[in-house]
Nucleic acid binder design. Structure first.
Lengths: 187, 187
DNA sequence: TCGCTCATGTAATGGGTTACATGATTCA
DNA sequence: TGAATCATGTAACCCATTACATGAGCGA
């Protein structure tokens, strides 16, 4: 999957591995991310397979950059992948739900403490979707105005994140109430 | 993670690898699942480490079963893990959002077709959360009435799935309208 | 007769994380 | 002075999927 994200971002403009990590953070980062080590390894494989080429961009006072550029073979691979529909329901793994499922019902306070931590995390994530994400989209358009029509779809993925967090927060609030009222008190 | 799910299920009662696969399907399957091969491998490691023990249960006309039982060391490991709060925001990877993000904006119909397929998938998943999942919970309580107070938490995770699917469907409907109206028509 | 359920496992491969290794510049 | 940013990569490991291997019983 990372492979296609790299091809997708390189289809906008040439970039180094380091640049790509930064771009992922402000674009697909909310629904797919990767560590630098994996990005470098995937770029290497992509170049061996002919989807991209790289050249060294010498710099002074800091390490040389290896800048990657997409090739026609890479564009074609991306096009084919994007055209393939997803026909299976994707399971979203969620470690917190595993903890909730198996939590000992008599240990009410420990569970409430965990749900309250989650509430904070998801509230700040929601704020991020409302503040930073729209700015990031504006920034990308400002840098490459020719991508303005892509922004409608970028915005759709941002909106997904926002809706998801609203739902998650709602669920946490509901579940906190349920646990407070429906689980036996040990005190 | 699978490790803790296996410990969690075995804390209810002894089971074989095959049984565990079936249990996962009707319990944590909506937010964490695993293939049989991984279950067998993980049980083997768990036994080597002393969290569980197995014994062979001979059968006629069909293969012998290897039934696993949780040990005190396994219960303790589970207890410790459940008590550790999750303090980082977990990124839910979603391949469909990657496809939406990078979809060529001029290829409107291909995108709409994909979104409509997703709408079907998520609607039938929602129906499942409303019909099969409550039945599965009732079935587990009927088999082990002593777990009735755990069911409050099982129900909370089911409710999460239901809310998630409602949100996903809402987003798909919104996005279909947006794509129809806000992307250029090629016809 | 074909496919499903029951039942166990191993081997190869792929995807991803953590740790290791290096080092200059810049800002608080 | 210490942390963050810029910049690249390798190696070891862990988690998970796919493919392989076996085989009886049962219902459509």
């Amino acid at each position: 999957m990372l492979r296609y994200i790299l091809l997708g971002l390189l289809s906008y403009r040439p970039m180094s591995g380091y640049d790509l990590e930064g771009q992922i953070k402000v674009s697909t980062g909310n629904f797919w991310h990767a560590k630098l080590s994996q990005i470098y390894a995937t770029l290497k494989r992509l170049e061996e397979e002919g989807g991209v080429v790289s050249h060294i961009d010498p710099q002074e006072g800091r390490p040389d950059r290896r800048v990657y550029q997409i090739m026609e073979a890479g564009r074609e691979e991306l096009r084919v992948w994007l055209a393939e529909p997803v026909t299976e329901h994707e399971v979203k793994k969620d470690g917190l739900l595993v903890k909730v499922f198996f939590h000992p019902p008599e240990d009410k306070e420990s569970l409430l403490a965990q749900l309250r931590i989650q509430l904070q995390l998801h509230r700040s994530k929601l704020a991020e979707y409302r503040q930073e994400s729209p700015e990031a989209i504006q920034h990308m358009i400002a840098e490459q105005p020719e991508l303005a029509s892509n922004a409608v779809l970028w915005e759709a993925t941002r909106r997904f994140g926002e809706m998801y967090e609203i739902t998650y927060i709602q669920w946490l609030e509901d579940t906190i109430l349920t646990v407070e009222n429906r689980l036996p008190s040990t005190t």
